[in-house]
Computed example of a mutant assay.
Amino acid sequence: MSEEVRAKRKETKVLAEMFDTRQVAIKLPARVVVRGVRKAIAEKDSLKPRVANRAGKVGVELDALTRVRVRLWLDALTQKAGCAVAELPVRYEMPETARFDLYDTLRRKPHPSTLRAVDLAEEKNEARAQPFRGTSLIYQYGPGALELWRVLEGKQRICRNVLNGEFRRVFSKEALRWGVPFSKKVDALMRAVPGAASADMLSILNGDAPHPVTLQFGEDIQQRDDGAREIAIETWQSHVVTAIAVWQIAQVTKDSFLEADFLLLGMLAGPLEVIFPKLGDWLGAFVHALILEKTATKNPERHAIIKWYATGKMQAAAPAIKG
């Protein structure tokens, strides 16, 4: 029996369990019924325990980005709870669908309903507020809810929303209604990012001078005043995510390549681990690999410059900082 036939039979069975088929046929369009059935199947399957494979392992193989999302989510939970991952379901009223053993070994990602339930979990045998409220945002969006994950995936609508958020700092909200071109928004971002406005981009990318964005990045993060340093960290977090978004948009629109490469490479050489604890080093390596892959065949010259930066020759421009 083919996979297509099996899928059709499964949909028919679920449809029979959920609805009176005759009523559905009369009241709902076929595409609505099919969409609802397939969604129900997906949700039902996601809650089933995984069967051990031939190697005896339970769970699934997660991609690199999902593994990082799961790990950061677990770190947020254990930090708030003050205990190990294995103790979370012992000490807190966790949902039955939560499989912390598989999450901890990065063999499963949490279902959206599980994320919501964990957000509302309370400690057993003790009247206490919900300590995990808001932790799901780390898994769904990234640190500071900055849409980092979907920007890394190259979701164009999200990338444009992120860029527009930075654009509003330079131009008014009214200007967005008139369809400002992508290149103009990038120019505005160049003026907003310290060190980028008057730089000789080609000369710097060729290695004739230290990258001014990297230098300014490091100087801002080194501020001794805690309040000013916290603001600087939040600002540079936003700059980094926006730079990645700009680079992703540039690949699709084939516009502002030089500015996109310049901004992103300058930030990747900066102290990412300071502004993104437990994530920055991985983020730098992930983005370097991403941009090398996307430019390898389409633009050999850009690829060569980016590869040169990726070897770490410009890392000396960034002061050594420990968070």
Rank of each mutant, 00 (worst) to 15 (best):
V5P: 01
R6S: 07
K10Y: 00
E11R: 15
L15A: 15
A16K: 09
Q23R: 11
L28V: 09
V32T: 04
V34L: 12
K39W: 09
A40Y: 11
K44L: 11
K44S: 13
D45W: 02
R50I: 11
R54Y: 08
G56F: 05
G59K: 10
V60G: 02
R69N: 06
L74F: 00
A76E: 15
Q79V: 09
C83N: 03
V85R: 02
V85D: 03
A86D: 14
E87D: 14
R91M: 15
E93Y: 01
P95G: 11
E96M: 08
T97D: 15
A98M: 06
A98T: 01
F100Q: 03
D101L: 12
L106Q: 11
K109W: 01
R116V: 15
A121C: 12
A121G: 07
K124V: 13
E126W: 07
Q130R: 15
S136D: 07
L137Y: 04
I138D: 02
I138A: 04
Y139M: 01
Q140H: 06
G144P: 03
W149V: 03
V151C: 12
R157F: 04
R157W: 01
C159Q: 03
R160Q: 14
G165W: 08
E166Q: 13
V170E: 14
S172T: 13
K173E: 14
W178C: 02
G179Y: 10
P181S: 14
M190E: 06
A192N: 09
V193F: 08
S203R: 10
S203D: 12
D208N: 09
P210L: 06
F217M: 10
G218H: 01
R224E: 11
D226L: 13
A228F: 07
I233F: 00
Q237I: 00
V240M: 08
T242P: 07
A245Q: 12
V246W: 02
W247S: 11
T253Q: 15
D255R: 08
G270Q: 05
P271K: 02
P271L: 01
E273F: 00
E273L: 04
F276M: 10
D281H: 14
W282P: 13
W282L: 10
W282F: 15
F286Y: 15
L290C: 08
L290M: 12
E293C: 07
K294H: 12
T295D: 01
K298L: 12
E301C: 00
I305F: 00
M314A: 11
